[in-house]
Design a protein around this nucleic acid. Structure first.
Lengths: 254, 254
DNA sequence: AGCGATCGCTTACACTGTTCACTGAAGCGG
DNA sequence: CCGCTTCAGTGAACAGTGTAAGCGATCGCT
């Protein structure tokens, strides 16, 4: 906190590399987002309101427009943050798994994804639920970018798998139209620095669809009245679609 | 329209079995929902507002509270309607498929589900998206009931399949905890008048998860920037998980 | 010291859901 | 046919919401 007045501001710590103005700006920006995050987790996406945030900060709502172009823009910025945090959360368990155990890392990451979603249902809904009215805000690009970064976390794991030639032969022919879409997916999503075989792409996409399906159902509580605990189903699905990818399944550590 | 004044109102057509008061009430109720539906399709769930509906009807917002306990209640009532319509939409193609062709009927129904979702994205989000703040409205029960009716459409098809002993042996052992959840699912969801084998339940649930996954991803446009056309992927997934259920896949008619 | 960018406020508009007290008309029993 | 009840719908009000425009003040740099 105490800042040496003799020091040149632009040559200090990494945090003070910005001008004072920029620093306080960054601070209030974080404060805004911090309060917005609290509202999101407690009251859902619809519960995030500029006026409520401003009130809690001791300022008025129009003042927030110096920081965000609109409420939608604030939410877009938050989506970017959450995507980055989710990417971290999904990469975090790698520290506990040896680097050469790709199977273990994949399983750990996919379980981390589910756990993050369960621990942050409102945030998950914001990221993976239905899109709002699609008007592009300044921060929408950042959200997209962060989403891509999140995807990349899985893609690198997947690349390590295909590099080992581990993906199982499905035995089912891939129709031409699907093949074209898979190639589109590969080039646009940034997966496959080394171009993966079509079967592998097919398995990757299918696995993601299945993971997305179970987790969505659990978080959105569509089976709540019909199943007590979704974890057995999740693990069963995990085991199934990981088998198609040639990944050795091991039950969760607990 | 012209009504014989001599006829006893309570012994007329099925529609006029109600008193005049009840009839006009039902009429305005339908008008409310009709306008609400238009707003939903055009502006999404957040775009449905009591005041806008009232304005369009030439009345004031508080008047609507004679018909619905709250905005949430109106939405719950709409969910019930849409679930029923979706159930119809999913059963509709059965008319074009012979009754003994269970495979054809299942494929047709699942494709109808996707097409309905694509044609009604906002409605789909209302039914299958993240749940709102879960305070129970009077019409919430009806929505639940309708959702069950929708599920039953698939379950009867599935029952016909298991009755023929068609479901393929997965070869994978079902863990005890999953088995317990599957049995819970079976008894609470009303599937299986004749108790289906565990493997079949496993396949049913897994298939639904995968169907839900692809359709959600397509409707919520999570692959929009990475794939042009989701139909090939949908058909591939359909083919895959239908194979596990022992269903003979045939490509769409077009 | 002055000047310009930025910040936050005030005011205002146009909305939203919901409650309460009230009017007016329609339906029903005598 | 009259009176009573029921109920649809209104007006006003409360408590919120996002957003645009204009105005001071303040901060930081020259």
């Amino acid at each position: 906190m105490a800042h040496d007045p003799a020091a040149i501001p632009s040559a200090d710590t990494a945090e003070a590399r910005l001008t004072r103005r920029e620093r306080v700006r960054e601070a209030t920006l974080r404060e805004i987002k911090g309060i917005a995050r609290a509202y999101l987790t407690e009251h859902g996406t619809a519960g995030v309101s500029l006026r409520a945030i401003a009130r809690e900060m001791g300022m008025t709502a129009p003042g927030l427009y110096r920081y965000f172009a609109s409420l939608r823009d604030l939410l877009a910025s938050m989506r970017a943050d959450y995507f980055n945090e989710l990417a971290d959360a999904v990469a975090a368990p790698h520290a506990a798994v040896p680097a050469d155990d790709v199977d273990g890392r994949i399983l750990a990451s996919l379980r981390a994804f589910r756990l993050w979603a369960l621990a942050h249902p409102a945030e998950f809904a914001l990221l993976f639920g239905p899109p709002g009215t699609s008007e592009d805000s300044p921060n929408e690009d950042e959200a997209m970018c962060a989403a891509q970064r999140f995807g990349a976390t899985f893609f690198t794991l997947f690349d390590q798998l295909t590099a080992q030639g581990r993906t199982v032969d499905t035995g089912v022919a891939i129709p031409d139209d699907l093949r074209r879409q898979l190639h589109l997916f590969a080039e646009r999503s940034g997966v496959g620095t080394t171009e993966p075989p079509d079967d592998a792409l097919r398995i990757l996409v299918s696995s993601w669809v299945r993971l997305y399906g179970v987790v969505c159902m659990e978080v959105f509580q569509h089976y709540a009245f019909v199943m007590d605990d979704m974890e057995p189903l999740f693990e069963a699905e995990l085991r199934d679609f990981m088998a198609t990818a040639g990944v050795r399944y091991t039950p969760p550590a607990d």
